[in-house]
Design a protein around this nucleic acid. Structure first.
Lengths: 153, 153
DNA sequence: GCGATTTAGTTGAGCATTCAACTACTGCCG
DNA sequence: CGGCAGTAGTTGAATGCTCAACTAAATCGC
């Protein structure tokens, strides 16, 4: 049962490679800036952001994993590092003895607050300043369609 | 000299997070598929693709690094692994004694040829099938604007 | 043509991520 | 109740990436 491959036509090829190059370049740039200015990779910054927005600045490990689009294992390792840095503390979950809560410490919050302006400025300069308002809107719709599609599969 | 941070408004925030989630989910999915089906990460696949398209299936290390948007160091490590797998061979550059050429072996080409249909199918299913033709066009323009902007900075 | 700078590429250490295996607890179904 | 499938999270090994330091060769400037 030889199934014909639906190859990419030249336009699709160009789009795919452009997307690949752009998203990689953007993430690499932001990651490098954040590492330089705040001493943490972007993935860790995101974890701190999500915690800072949660009630009492704490979340179940699995909710945090979902929120950051990370695997359980990755999050476990990451939180271990963040805990060693003093930015996060682990707490037992009162309602489920298997569960753990990650809580953002004051120190972690302060570190995040110090890093945020520089990082936001980076996102603006490298992403939004390159796009028209219409393109920003298009990018949002495209991204949401993509996420939606991927989560259905 | 306190410079006001240009914070993201709610729309921008939403766009940024959607983009982050979508590109990460897409790349993770394709990476996992490629690892499962071809035993290599997406970055390595890309290296093989670029080599396969080059005259005599070989390129200078630095051109290959540029083509794949990778650092010199990363490429060195990657080619070392690809060489160990028997998919790439290093050759001395005849015109610059500092230089190295990476050449795709027949075995590497065969491996690539075997992996390509599945991977292309994945790109189509996870990316293009989720978007309208207009969105594909928008995504290309956005990506090209972004790359252009980033390379100027 | 000779020293200083730049460019090409590699290397090793340290960090991040993945995968698979594992423990411990919950909740369901008989 | 008792067993058992599913869920929560961790761990260690293997892999890949980053950064900084390094070697070696080309090129620039005088």
């Amino acid at each position: 049962m030889a199934v014909m491959t639906r190859w990419l036509d030249p336009d699709e090829q160009r789009t795919w490679r452009a997307f690949l190059a752009a998203s990689r370049a953007l993430m690499d740039t932001l990651d490098r800036e954040l590492q330089r200015d705040a001493g943490m990779p972007h993935a860790y910054y995101e974890i701190l952001v999500r915690l800072s927005e949660a009630p009492e600045r704490r979340l179940r490990m699995s909710e945090l994993a979902d929120a950051t689009g990370s695997s359980r294992s990755r999050l476990s390792h990451a939180v271990a590092r963040l805990e060693a840095a003093g930015w996060v503390r682990r707490e037992d979950c009162p309602t489920d003895r298997r569960g753990q809560l990650a809580r953002l410490t004051d120190d972690g919050f302060a570190t995040l607050a110090a890093a945020a302006p520089g990082h936001v400025e980076g996102v603006r300069r490298h992403l939004f300043d390159a796009l028209s308002p219409a393109q920003v809107d298009q990018l949002r719709r495209i991204s949401e369609a993509l996420t939606d599609h991927l989560s259905r599969a």
